[in-house]
Design a protein around this nucleic acid. Structure first.
Lengths: 131, 131
DNA sequence: ATCAACCTTCACATAAGTGTAAAGCCAGCA
DNA sequence: TGCTGGCTTTACACTTATGTGAAGGTTGAT
């Protein structure tokens, strides 16, 4: 598909898709006329990239972990580059840490919201009911 | 405590502490001589701020959720600003989303690492043993 | 007096976008 | 045939967020 369709289907603006290509995160084939041609699986791929960037993973790192996310569960490289392996382990640990931080803080926010809601309803304020 | 001690104890460089103050995330009292004076609980606070920024939460948002993290579990505002409440709910949901994205991708990385390790050991490569 | 820790301020750096102009491609249609 | 409109291309510049470096000055302890 071309860039416009991918924009529609992935929700990622064409402008960003070109930017991500510049950053080496996606490298679509080119048609004879120079237009970018994207494979089907890239719809999910670019959504995933968005999520990762949004979660504080820099593009430089995302480039490294992309091979882990191959749609057509492709060949794991025969012999592992030990440097890459170490990068992956580090990044896995960093992600675990982010998950912990986010969980803790989300829970704190949740408790705070509940306290506010309780306080609000005690005052007769209109609040959404628990489901 | 002064900025140097906070730098030591929180691991956040003094330069950044001043920057976060500029962004309105911490507002230490001032001594007569103009030096910043930080309360004890800010040691944890600034570490939390670091974690949140690192997890892709912009400072503008962090400013909003800081009240949720009060050390001396302070007064929940008597009447809830419904706008703030909505911001909090949105941010809670966004954080949940980030957690999901990170978890999924971390698991994919973990599987990939294991595949690499297996492939490596099959080739006689030296690898760390499972504990 | 000297020296480290602190102050402000201005400037620079990097990442991740975002705007947009000027041109190329192509399908439909008079 | 040639025009029009929509999609696509590159290229250059601008913006915002998050820092970082360093100059030049003040404070306080020894």
């Amino acid at each position: 598909m071309r860039i416009g369709e991918l924009e529609q289907r992935s929700g990622v603006p064409a402008r960003m898709l070109r930017y991500y290509e510049e950053q080496g995160l996606v490298t679509p084939r080119r048609l004879d006329n120079g237009y970018r041609e994207y494979d089907e699986y890239l719809v999910d791929r670019v959504a995933k990239i968005r999520g990762l960037i949004d979660s504080g993973i820099p593009t430089r790192i995302i480039g490294n972990i992309l091979p882990c996310l191959n749609q057509p569960q492709r060949v794991v490289v025969d012999d592992a580059d030990p440097e890459l392996l170490e990068i992956l382990r580090q990044e896995r640990d960093r992600m675990t840490h982010k998950i912990d931080v986010l969980s803790q803080n989300r829970d704190a926010i949740t408790r705070y919201i509940q306290a506010l809601e309780t306080a609000g309803s005690r005052h007769g304020t209109r609040e959404r009911q628990p489901a």
